[in-house]
Amino acid sequence: MASLKVIVASLNPVKQAAARQAFEQAFPDMAISITGVDVPSGVRDQPMTDAETLLGARQRAQRAQQEQPHADFWVGLEGGVADAQGLGLQAFGWMCVRTDSREYSARSASFPLPRAAVAAIEGGEELGPVMDGLFKEQNTKHKGGAVGLLTNGLVSREALYIQPLIFALIPFMHEPLF
């Protein structure tokens, strides 16, 4: 069986699991090897715009490639928040998948945040610790995440990230078309 070596620009087990699921679904006839590497995003700990969040994902993937240059794919995942065209602050994630020659990105669905979380984030705090405080939990960003807490476990952070990772893999799944 052929194999793919994938470097995920995070040591977060949720992000690594999402990448594993996406690559295994996109390339079912390949053995997938996932390795995490801790690299900075180059953006704020809590990205506050769509563009900043995408930049964080792209820079993570680029830095992962610099750190671990011998792989088939490098993946950057970045969670962020942004004002949803007057609908209030919403959370989402950007995924970036790159190879030596190409890079593609896709965005997750977004979801609304509670007023108390919005106030804390606008005051400079990061979503994960804010949600931990609101729900009396610990380290939720390495578990189900804010989306898991807010959906009562119906959607986990891992699940939220799998679909856009698959979308970012479309050009690699259908290379002649791209």
Rank of each mutant, 00 (worst) to 15 (best):
L127I: 07
T35D: 10
K136D: 14
T35F: 09
R60H: 09
A91R: 04
V147T: 07
V6E: 07
F111T: 05
S3A: 14
E24N: 12
F135H: 14
L160R: 00
R107N: 03
G88F: 11
G79V: 01
A120E: 11
A2K: 14
S108V: 00
A168S: 10
F111S: 06
E24K: 13
F111C: 12
E122D: 14
P13K: 09
Q65K: 14
Q163G: 09
V130E: 06
P47R: 04
G128R: 02
Q68G: 07
G144A: 05
Y104V: 01
G153W: 08
A106T: 04
A26L: 05
V39Q: 05
A109C: 12
E78F: 00
D83E: 15
F172K: 01
G133D: 11
A2F: 12
K136I: 02
G42F: 10
K143R: 13
G56E: 07
T99R: 00
A61D: 08
G153N: 09
Q85K: 15
L87K: 15
A64L: 09
E24P: 04
Y161M: 13
P69H: 08
P69E: 05
H70G: 00
P176G: 08
P112I: 01
L134Q: 11
K141A: 11
P164T: 00
M1P: 12
L134C: 10
I170C: 06
L150K: 01
L113N: 01
F92C: 06
E125C: 05
G93S: 15
A57E: 06
Q66I: 07
G145S: 07
R44C: 08
V118C: 11
V130G: 03
A82S: 14
E122S: 13
A168K: 01
L113A: 04
E24I: 03
I32Q: 08
D72H: 06
A120G: 04
G86P: 09
R115M: 13
Q65V: 00
G88V: 05
S33Y: 00
Y104W: 15
A9T: 03
L4Q: 03
G80Q: 03
G128E: 06
R115A: 15
L160Q: 05
A31G: 11
A18F: 03
Q59L: 15
E67W: 11
Q21W: 02
Q65N: 05
K143C: 08
R58W: 01
A71M: 10
L154R: 13
A64C: 11
D72G: 07
I32C: 09
P114H: 09
A64D: 08
E122Q: 15
T151L: 09
L149T: 00
T99W: 00
L55C: 09
S108G: 12
P164I: 00
K143T: 10
Q16I: 02
P40I: 05
V97S: 10
A117N: 07
P40H: 06
E78Q: 13
N139H: 11
V97P: 02
M131W: 00
D132E: 08
T140P: 01
S101E: 14
S3E: 13
A2L: 14
M131P: 01
F23L: 12
I170W: 04
Q66Y: 12
F27L: 07
